[in-house]
């Protein structure tokens, strides 16, 4: 290597290089940044996909003269799993939804079901159709079903943008906040402040390195979700990139704020968890934020992670372009500017 590096790029480049090296030499950081979201996507994707092969619905036919005939009729539908039971046993099996519906074995078909079970009503109609047809009912018109799997509408499609948003939040905040406090605790900040290093170079190196990590993190999640779960990226890549960069900078700013005067890593961890935890829960990572009541929405919508997640979903799942998500991009970028400026002003080197 050249003993006298080029002056202009020299220190900033060396600082960025140091950040990248330290990160990629730390196995646990690599796992939390790249491995964890992928594992989470895999686990949740498998748990909630199930769409291609739905489980058979458990139903029962009660004791009675027509029990055997009805069991035979209903078993022709592979979507049903049919057992013969006495009524007492059947009633017990509603507990814990071990059966969804029971039909009597008498001449008259009497249905037992729990109306609060989400599949009860559909199952009743399905069973009723089968029995009526077997008894000779003619359908008035011919029907046919075309199964449509709308892209971007499955749970995994909902989940992946949320995981990207969550990952951007936690890696930006930990990567900036924790690392700076650690450097202060070790007196590295003090030592650097005693050199002619430009202070803007040091903090700039954190932001530049963050951009590199950001690109690889998002790429890692997509590189996994796209082939494995067939997640389709519908919208503008530029819009997604702008959202990610603005979001990462906003969270970097929050990390800088949390770390600007803190000297213990425990304190900064607590502070950052305090900032992040409400967003993990409220901002629609694992389930839609619209489940929360209206009066909470005024608080939830402006949260940076909500803006980032909703924006990413609009782009990835619904095909939005830059114009459609301009508002969250500008809001996140504005938040980044303010938090970074205030954090820098408060920042203590010694």
């Amino acid at each position: 290597m050249n003993p006298t590096p080029p002056r202009l790029l020299g220190p900033l480049w060396e600082l960025v290089l140091a950040r990248l090296r330290e990160f990629f030499r730390e196995p646990t950081a690599i796992f939390w940044t790249y491995g964890f979201p992928t594992v989470l996507a895999l686990a949740l994707g498998i748990a909630f996909s199930g769409g291609t092969d739905p489980k058979a619905i458990p139903i029962a036919v009660l004791d009675g003269p027509r029990q055997a005939a009805r069991v035979g009729t209903l078993r022709q539908d592979p979507g049903l799993s049919v057992v013969s039971l006495c009524e007492d046993e059947a009633r017990r099996r509603f507990e814990g939804a071990r059966i969804v519906l029971a039909v009597s074995g008498d001449d008259e078909a009497r249905y037992l079901f729990d109306p609060t079970h989400p599949e009860a009503d559909a199952t009743r109609r399905r069973v009723d159709d089968l029995l009526q047809r077997a008894a000779g009912r003619q359908d008035a018109i011919v029907t046919r079903s075309d199964l449509v799997q709308a892209p971007g509408s499955r749970y995994i499609d909902f989940l992946v943008p949320g995981l990207i948003g969550m990952n951007i939040m936690s890696s930006s905040m930990w990567g900036i906040g924790y690392a700076l406090v650690e450097a202060r605790k070790r007196k590295l900040l003090k030592r650097l402040a005693a050199t002619p290093m430009k202070r803007s170079h040091f903090l700039g190196s954190f932001l530049i390195a963050r951009m590199v990590f950001l690109a690889t993190e998002v790429a890692a999640i997509l590189a996994f979700a796209v082939p494995v779960f067939d997640v389709r990226f519908q919208g503008s890549i530029l819009a997604a990139a702008l959202l990610c960069v603005a979001g990462a900078m906003a969270f970097a700013g929050l990390g800088l704020l949390a770390s600007s005067r803190t000297t213990s890593t425990e304190t900064v961890s607590g502070l950052m968890n305090l900032i992040m935890l409400p967003m993990f829960v409220l901002s629609g990572v694992f389930f839609s934020a619209s489940h929360f009541p209206d009066w909470m929405q005024a608080f939830i919508r402006p949260l940076p992670l909500t803006m980032l997640n909703d924006g990413l979903r609009a782009v990835i799942n619904e095909g939005a372009g830059v114009g459609d998500v301009a508002l969250p991009i500008v809001a996140l970028a504005g938040g980044a500017l303010v938090t970074l400026a205030v954090g820098l002003r408060w920042f203590k080197w010694t």
Partner: peptide
């Protein structure tokens, strides 16, 4: 600052950088 050389009472400069990488970094300042 250009003309001073400093070793503080205790500093941990880094964990996972090599000795030479650290010295090159400080040289660049």
């Amino acid at each position: 600052r250009q003309r001073l050389g400093i070793a503080l009472q205790e500093t941990t400069l880094a964990d996972r950088l090599t000795v030479r990488e650290i010295v090159v970094l400080f040289r660049s300042f």
